[in-house]
Simulated scan of single mutants.
Amino acid sequence: MLQFTVPGMTCGGCANAIRKSLAAVPGITAIQADPPDRRLAVEGDVGADLIVRTLADAGYDATPIA
């Protein structure tokens, strides 16, 4: 599971937009967005760089959590 901080994810609408963007990425099998903590968890066969780029295209900065 890859985890990220997403400072701009402040509400349920943001979380839905993020889920929608990531749902289009092949290989992702699960997405958990937590707006109050501004954290995102993604499962699947996909790299962190692709997730960061996809979120940037959707207007959100994301930083992987080591």
Rank of each mutant, 00 (worst) to 15 (best):
G12C: 11
G12N: 13
G13T: 15
C14L: 08
C14F: 08
C14P: 00
C14K: 06
A15N: 06
A15L: 05
A15T: 07
A15W: 03
N16L: 12
N16V: 11
A17P: 00
I18L: 04
R19E: 15
R19M: 11
R19F: 01
K20D: 13
K20C: 03
K20G: 02
S21E: 13
S21K: 10
S21Q: 12
A23V: 05
A23D: 15
A23H: 08
A23K: 08
A23L: 02
A23F: 05
A23N: 13
A23P: 01
A23Q: 12
A24R: 13
A24G: 06
A24W: 07
A24P: 03
A24H: 09
V25W: 02
P26M: 11
P26Q: 09
G27V: 10
G27T: 08
I28P: 01
T29L: 06
T29I: 07
A30N: 13
A30I: 09
I31P: 03
Q32A: 14
Q32G: 09
Q32V: 15
Q32H: 09
A33P: 01
A33M: 05
A33G: 11
A33T: 14
A33F: 01
D34F: 03
P35L: 10
P36E: 12
P36H: 04
P36M: 09
P36W: 06
D37Y: 00
D37M: 12
D37N: 13
D37G: 11
D37W: 01
D37C: 09
D37E: 14
D37A: 15
D37T: 15
R38A: 15
R39G: 10
R39V: 13
R39L: 13
R39T: 15
R39M: 13
L40V: 08
L40T: 03
L40Q: 04
L40G: 02
A41V: 07
A41I: 06
V42G: 00
V42Q: 04
E43L: 07
G44P: 00
G44I: 08
G44F: 04
G44Y: 03
D45I: 01
D45Y: 00
D45A: 12
D45S: 11
V46S: 05
V46Q: 03
V46M: 05
V46E: 05
G47L: 05
G47D: 14
G47F: 00
G47A: 12
A48K: 04
A48Y: 04
D49K: 07
D49H: 08
D49V: 12
D49Q: 10
L50G: 12
L50C: 10
L50F: 00
L50Y: 01
L50T: 15
I51Y: 02
I51F: 03
I51E: 04
V52G: 06
